[in-house]
Amino acid sequence: MSEKQQPYILQTVDLTKSFGRQTAVNMVSLNILPGEFVSIIGPNGAGKTTFFNLITGAFKPDSGIIYFKGRDITKAKEFNRVQMGMARCFQITNVFPHISVLENVRLAVQAKSKHKYRLFINADKLKELTEYAHYCLEIVQLKNMAYQMAISLTHADQRKLEIAIQLASQGELMLLDEPTAGMSAEEVPAIVEVIKDIRKKEQKTIVMVEHKLNMVLSLSDHIAVMNYGMLIAYGSPREIKENQDVQSAYLGRKGDA
């Protein structure tokens, strides 16, 4: 693996991925500094989720390079990327349905611990894992539901559980794929609070795909705009608001937001 000296935590160089004749992600180069909050916006089908899938390793790019913490991870397996410090939540809720909420989170803590292959010790007796899981649930305001089955939670609470699982992975880089997908308007502020709280308490770099523009504008340090697989703009929330290309591609079409 080639070592590169650079300050970026995540860097993509000309990342490209096609499905048949459709180029979902087209020559996307993005540099993200540690501690930054970067949002990716764009119309449906712009390639945002595919871009995420390339970063996490669910898909392999046709060309281009991905550096994470200065290391080329283009060919690294998904679980290795997580072990290196990447954590992801999903657009479609993706939890362990028939396991308790606490165990969902505990499993993520355990994955990063030295105990993960141990055979003859009771997992519930590893206090430090359970305590950290409780801490993550507290941050996302699910403390009272720790012993329910994950499947019994409301959709909004499952979204919070997603974030708790991600926190429990203790990755420096959090990838949030539409954390408020499918939520009603009343439920959104709670998630925004949770994300703000995470930024305050933990030094995380966050990359978020989101459609709710108010939320994106208020949370982000930088916004990247994608359209037809290409990165068409990158800048601060103010710059993005004023950008002509963005307005015609995305912001002008109010119905999408």
């Binding site: 992801r88 362990f96 165990e103 499993l107 990063k112 105990h115 141990r118």
Partner: peptide, 22 residues
């Protein structure tokens, strides 16, 4: 009831998610 055993259950429940938590 060991960490390994609990991970097996996690894999049964959601293989993809198990991968994505490392």
């Amino acid at each position: 009831s060991s960490p390994l055993g609990k991970t097996l259950v996690a894999i049964r429940e959601n293989e993809f998610r198990a991968k994505m938590i490392g």
